[in-house]
Write a protein that binds this DNA or RNA. Structure first.
Length: 956
RNA sequence: GGGCGGCUAGCUCAGUUGGUUAGAGCGCUACGUUCACACCGUAGAGGUCACAAGUUCGAGUCUUGUGUCGCCCACCA
């Protein structure tokens, strides 16, 4: 349905119906979540406020002389915005024809062509119907020069071209030369005719049009002459503009199209009311009858197409409201240049500044029927007397309303006389004033304002402007605007300039431009394409925190994100990939269970049967990451809570304690085990990383840091280790305190990304451990969302502790690795020994219980003099050797294979290091520390290689 | 046509100021359900970092060019 089918009132009614449907859905979902919302009140408040602010702004601009009436070409989507039926619009995308027409020459003041001059000018067009709006035919002002220029360009191309393309290009050059020889005299003759202002007969219309000179005519194409239709073609429009700027012949512009896509009263009667497509047929037929159709040529043509209807766009000339941008744009540029508004990432500053620097006036009118209507009433006048009476009337209207500040009256005159238009603008809706104006013959403008006009006011209009509300005073300017890059110019720039204009103050301090989510094919998700995911479906399937965390995880600085979409079969829960084909279908059959289900389209254009089908959700597997993570967190939290039942807070003020950053106290330092100090160090480091990442809008970095820490360090190591300590009475209390504290901090850090989960655990944690904290045990906030953001406890950050712990992890990894490679059954106990220095022994010996619980391995010996058992699998590590006794599983062949593989790898590494170090350039030019590092590495790896070779030798 | 960005494992993406043998999740392979978690655990396989030239002792990282995909703007950045 188009607006013409319905009429304005019905259309608006329909839109409200659609809105109401959406609201109902949202409301019911809010209810399910237990939320309440006075939606009606909110909606009307916002709508009223918005309308008021729009009118106020427009009035200010109008009174400030920043609004004017101008002309521009509007790209008209004939299919979507007009009443013509589907078969009356052009659908061909690239196939088309060139029609060659002859326009008779009637010379200067009708005396006909001079002897030797052509009697006809031939033009070619892909859109014959537009000839009814022609206002000139153009020929190049200097065809010889134009030919030379094209030839020169072609020659440059030939030089740069590959040999394959060369032949073709050279052929083109030859043709061009031949054409030049043949056509130049004729074109120069036409140019001379244009200079003496020769007129042509425009067939079918009875009008005469001038032959003019303009660079748009291309001597190398067609006949070298081009018809000019300024009201329906962008390039012709430019020709018109140039002709106005030049002295001499100024051509006109005739719009031949109604807004419903039919021809208007500016064409001869027989064509009026025809659609453009029908008019084309008629024009061609009539030209043929008049014997002015020279030939028809098949051609591939490029036309601008509407993104939505896929039909070609019909440009047409329209009178429009413009807002002058010079001062406004300047103010918005300054705000960013001098840093009052900071754009993140910074490269988008360029987009913003470049666009504004053009200071192109903003056409604010739109030929739609929904939106804020332009609050201007107009009345045409002819002659001075009418003009004077209109001025008198305007005073009367003012009087009728009673306050003159709220109306603004201006007039514009036609360029050529005393006729013109009077404009009345009302500041606020004034039924009496408007009625008075209408009774005097004023008509309200039919256009509505660009949607970005009201959007530009968003930061202050939503806070009640133009009233000076407390909200406005408190919240304006806001802190950060978060948006997508494709509306930096449309929205961000305009919000800044509107804010500065209305409020005299920027609307926000920072603008964060986030990446954009695309579908699996790299296309922008959109409702009309049907390739989106419904966040509500994602929440239904994966959970709200999973969605939120998943999005944060994807929010990297540079990249757009591809999100392959799948339908979830409501019957068997299989996932069916969304394809370009199935994404617009109202019903789909499941690949797996072969049962049909409905999609989001079932409601809009499915049959009743489709609508009755259960709906398949549109989701993406990429949110599994978030779901798994949340699940992991939940289970780890459950474990912690279970084991904190007899938790006792630490007592403050003990003498033998480590003093923390803020002077508070915890447990004795000597009570803390290596793993505690490792965890606290990591926790402090990660807190710093997350805080910094969030401060800089690096959401993915924050999410990744938390994911890695929570899963690989907190769960996989600390929680695993703490299990063993809970079994030992005297170790339990300290472990509990550290665990409670770590979980507490982790929840605070996670809260921005997993608010529901962290809040739930926070509440449960408060039950078992109401008083917690490292430095000064205290009762935390009653909700995590108001809990203080964790500070970085730098006192715990200890790189040497982390390095020591890494040693433990490496040995653990080596033992596990050997177990797997030797196919030792998981529950089979093994024994191992480690050759290492005395310091490492001190470090690792206390960890023996963990080797048992986490790798099923018992240590038999530690120290520098350890020798491998008779039948063992060995692994060289940095400064250590791990030997696992595998007498029960010994397989000499397999062990040899493993060692040989290891040897080859190490040998390769040694070679590459050797090569580097024997390169004199490297040794002399690289920084000393880098060279030293490489040397140390080489020594280390050589040692490892030797031990592998020794183990191999022993096997023999 | 101009501007911006992407191209790294089968897929989706990280990769700081150039410096060890380039990482993660999913998927894949093998093994494992007994004490938080199979939405799990342990281990493993998998990469000519789009291509070409250059700078450098050394390039995924810097420079230039080419290809390709995407977005924005298009008489003008």
């Amino acid at each position: 349905l188009t607006r013409h089918d319905l009429g304005r009132e019905k259309l608006v009614e329909r839109i409200w119906e659609w809105k109401a449907q959406y609201e109902k859905r949202i409301l019911s979902q809010l209810k399910q979540l237990g939320a309440s919302c006075d939606w009606q009140r909110l909606r009307f408040t916002l709508d009223d406020q918005c309308a008021r602010a729009v009118r106020e702004t427009f009035f200010k601009l109008f009174a400030d002389n920043k609004v004017y009436r101008g002309k521009r070409l509007v790209n008209w989507d004939t299919f979507l915005q007009t009443a013509v039926s589907d078969d009356e619009v052009f659908h061909e995308a690239t196939k088309g024809h060139f029609w060659h027409f002859n326009y008779p020459v009637i010379g200067v003041s009708g005396e006909g062509p001079k002897p030797g001059e052509p009697t006809h000018v031939t033009i070619a067009t892909t859109r014959p119907e537009t000839m009814l709006g022609d206002t000139a035919v153009a020929v190049h002002p200097d065809p010889a020069k134009a030919f030379d220029k094209v030839s020169a360009e072609l020659r440059e191309k030939i030089i740069a071209a590959s040999s394959k393309e060369k032949g073709e290009l050279e052929e083109q050059a030859t043709l061009l030369l031949a054409r030049r020889a043949k056509m130049l005299p004729q074109l120069e003759k036409l140019r001379d005719m244009a200079l003496r202002q020769v007129q042509l007969q425009l067939p079918l219309t009875g009008r005469t049009i001038p032959l003019i000179c303009d660079e748009w005519a291309k001597p190398e194409l067609g006949s070298g002459c081009v018809k000019i239709t300024p009201a329906h073609d962008e390039n012709d429009y430019q020709v018109w503009q140039r002709s106005l700027a030049r002295k001499g012949v100024a051509i006109g512009a005739i719009n031949i199209m109604n807004t419903d896509g039919t021809l208007n009263e500016n064409v001869p009667e027989k064509y009026r009311g025809l659609s453009m497509k029908k008019a084309r047929e008629a024009v061609i037929a009539d030209m043929e009858v008049a014997e002015l159709l020279v030939e028809t040529e098949d051609r591939e043509i490029e036309l601008a197409h509407s993104d939505r209807s896929k039909t070609p766009i019909e440009p047409y000339l329209a009178d429009q409201w413009f807002v002058k941008m010079d001062e406004l744009a300047e103010s918005a540029m300054d705000a960013v240049s001098d840093g009052r508004v900071k754009i993140v990432p910074e490269r988008y500053k360029k987009t913003y500044l470049d666009w504004l620097s053009e200071k192109r006036d903003w056409p604010v009118g739109r030929q739609l029927w929904w939106g804020h209507r332009v609050p201007v009433w107009t009345k045409r006048f002819e002659g001075l007397s009418q003009r004077d009476s209109i001025i008198a009337e305007s005073t009367r209207i003012d009087d009728a309303i009673g306050y003159g500040d709220d109306t603004c009256f201006t007039m514009s005159h036609d360029p050529d006389g005393t006729d013109g238009v009077a404009y009345l603008c009302f500041r606020v809706a004034q039924p009496e004033g408007e009625a008075e104006a209408e009774s005097l013959g004023y008509i309200q403008d039919d256009e509505v304002l660009d949607t970005w006009f009201s959007s530009a006011l968003w930061p202050h209009s939503t806070l009640g402007w133009p009233e000076q509300t407390p909200e406005l005073a408190h919240f304006y300017p806001t802190s950060t605007l978060i948006t997508s890059r494709d509306i930096i110019t449309l929205w961000v720039a305009r919000m800044v300039l509107a804010g500065l204009y209305n409020m005299n103050e920027i609307p926000f301090h920072e603008v964060f431009i986030h990446p954009k989510i695309l579908d699996g094919y790299g296309e922008t998700m959109s409702k009309s394409k049907g390739n989106g995911v419904d966040p509500l479906d994602v929440i239904e399937k994966f959970g709200a925190d999973s969605l939120r965390f998943g999005i944060a995880y994807l929010c990297t600085e540079t990249q757009d994100v591809r999100l392959p979409v799948e339908f979830e079969c409501p019957h068997c829960h299989a996932l069916i990939p969304q394809t370009k084909k199935n994404r617009t279908l109202p019903r789909i059959e499941c690949d797996k269970c072969k049962q049909p289900f409905g999609t989001q389209w079932a409601l809009s254009y499915g049959t009743a049967e489709d609508q009755a089908l259960p709906r398949g959700a549109a989701v993406s597997e990429r949110f599994e990451l978030g779901r798994n993570f949340c699940n992991k967190l939940w289970n780890a939290s459950r474990f912690a809570l279970m084991n904190l039942e007899d938790y006792k807070a630490a007592t403050a003020g003990r003498a033998d304690v480590k003093t923390a950053t803020d002077g508070g106290v915890f447990v004795a330092e000597k009570e803390l085990l290596l793993e505690d100090r490792w965890l606290l160090s990591r926790l402090a480091t990660v807190t710093g990383e997350v805080t910094e990442a969030l401060d800089q809008y690096r959401f993915a970095d924050a999410a990744r840091a938390l994911y890695g820490f929570a899963w690989d360090e907190f769960c996989s190591f600390y929680v695993e280790m703490v299990k063993a300590r809970f079994a030992v009475a005297e170790q339990k209390a300290v472990a509990q305190r550290v665990l409670a504290h770590a979980l507490d901090t982790l929840l605070r850090l996670l809260h921005p990304m997993t608010p529901f989960l962290s809040e739930e655990v926070w509440q449960l944690l408060a039950e078992v451990a109401p008083c917690r904290g490292l430095t000064s045990p205290a009762r935390p906030a009653e909700s995590v969302c108001i809990a203080e953001w964790p500070k970085v406890d730098t006192i715990w950050i200890d790189k040497s502790i982390e390095a020591q712990f890494a040693k433990f992890q490496t040995v653990m990894g080596a033992v596990r690795n050997i177990r797997m490679e030797k196919n030792i059954p998981p529950r089979e106990p093994v024994q191992f020994s480690v050759k290492c220095d005395a310091e490492t022994v001190k470090l690792l010996k206390p960890m023996e219980p963990y080797f048992l619980s986490m790798a099923g391995a018992t240590a038999t010996a530690w120290g520098p003099k350890v020798t491998p058992p008779e039948r063992s699998a060995s692994k060289p590590l940095e400064g250590m050797e791990v030997h696992v006794d595998i007498s029960a599983f010994f397989d000499a062949g397999a062990e040899r294979t493993r060692l040989e593989k290891e040897r080859d790898q190490l040998a390769k590494f040694v070679d590459s290091l050797n090569a580097k170090l024997s390169n004199e350039n490297f040794v002399s030019r690289a920084p000393a520390n880098v060279v030293e590092e490489q040397r140390a590495k080489l020594a280390e790896v050589r040692g490892q290689l030797q031990s592998v070779e020794a183990a191999l030798g022993k096997l023999e």
